[in-house]
């Protein structure tokens, strides 16, 4: 299943998770860092647990964050400065 399809909650529940309890805290902390956020929604957690089994060459967890909140903040500020 492609990662983007994992955003379908029903599909996630059907496939189950591939992260054990020991990994979960690490994965949650990493996702919060990447998403520049302080809390996870239920949907975030479901998606996260599905994709977190994918690891990179150093066994670091790969998590796709579709839109960077930090980037949005900077963009909005730059636009506002340009208009005023």
């Amino acid at each position: 299943m492609a990662i983007e399809e994992a955003f379908n909650q029903a599909e996630i529940e059907r496939c189950g998770t591939n992260v054990d309890e020991d990994d979960e805290a690490v994965v949650r902390a990493m996702y919060l860092s990447l998403a520049e956020s302080e809390e996870l929604s239920e949907q975030d957690i479901a998606v996260l647990m599905f994709v977190a089994g994918r690891t990179d060459q150093y066994d670091r967890t790969v998590v796709n964050v579709p839109m960077s909140p930090l980037l949005i903040e900077h963009f909005l500020r730059f636009l506002s400065e340009a208009v005023t």
Binding site: L71, H74, F75, R77, F78, L79, S80, A82, V83
Partner: peptide
């Protein structure tokens, strides 16, 4: 804000951000 600025300016600001 994007509608106020031209497309070239929008691209420039998103690149900077």
């Amino acid at each position: 804000l994007m509608g106020t600025l031209g497309p070239e300016a929008v691209f420039f600001h998103i690149d900077c951000a």
